[in-house]
């Protein structure tokens, strides 16, 4: 995820180059941010290393300026303070960071935030309808589909997608299609019960 070009450039980095060349350009264009950033020349580089991102999170449009190396997970957690999406491994191995992007379940730690231009992201915070819980959230409570609760947002986001995908026709199929979401407390049987109940409830979710 790290921008390594700096260390590959001979004698001085791309960052240094940006600092020098951009200073001239920047002064010509005089965006206030750059002038202000010039007080600390390290910050100049960062202004130019940021890219615009317009996307929607939980129905709210956002227009941000972010570093290209920022993952969607870290953007959500650290910059947008949407901490319902969890970091469990940062390697796409545990599923705790699962969100929906345009309706598909995705490990947000394995996708860069800048890739979400124009897309609709739903996190656990956007699943309930105001105070009314989503049926999957209710079923998780009823069947006690968690203990510590840390994998739970990822499990629920994955579970909703699993049903929508048509991969919840039997407990066996659910177990297979939910296996990307690790629960270390071991709530698996209760999670499967919760998903089957929502599926068999027949409501569109």
């Amino acid at each position: 995820m790290e921008n390594e070009s700096a260390s590959h450039a001979p004698n001085g980095s791309r960052r240094d180059f940006l600092k020098q060349s951009s200073l001239l350009t920047a002064l010509a264009l005089t965006p206030t941010a750059v002038i202000k950033a010039a007080e600390n020349d390290e910050e100049i580089a960062s202004v130019f290393e940021k890219v615009p991102l317009k996307f929607e999170v939980n129905g709210v449009k956002h227009s941000l300026s972010i570093e290209p190396r920022v993952t969607l997970l870290d953007l959500l957690r650290e910059q947008m303070k949407l901490t319902g999406t969890k970091k469990g491994c940062d390697h796409g191995q545990c599923g705790a960071c699962t969100v929906h992007i345009d309706g598909r379940r995705v490990n947000s730690c394995l996708t860069l935030a800048v890739m979400q231009e124009g897309k609709k992201v739903t996190t656990i915070e956007g699943l309930a309808n105001g105070d009314k819980l989503h049926p999957m959230q209710e079923a998780f409570i009823k069947h006690d589909g968690f203990q510590c609760g840390y994998c739970t947002p990822g499990q629920i986001m994955s579970a909703v997608a699993c049903v929508r995908e048509g991969h919840a026709s039997s407990p066996e199929q659910v177990r297979e299609y939910m296996s990307g979401n690790i629960c270390r407390c071991g709530a698996y049987p209760n999670i499967v019960d919760a998903i089957m109940e929502v599926k068999n409830g027949g409501n569109k979710i």
């Binding site: 901490t83 699943l127 309930a128 959230q137 409570i141 009823k142 006690d144 609760g149 739970t152 629920i156």
Partner: peptide, 21 residues
Amino acid sequence: LDRVDGKMKVTGKAKYAAEHH
């Protein structure tokens, strides 16, 4: 009894250590 902190956990509102800013 249903877990008393269940709603906080299924809505993502439960704040774990690293989630304070």
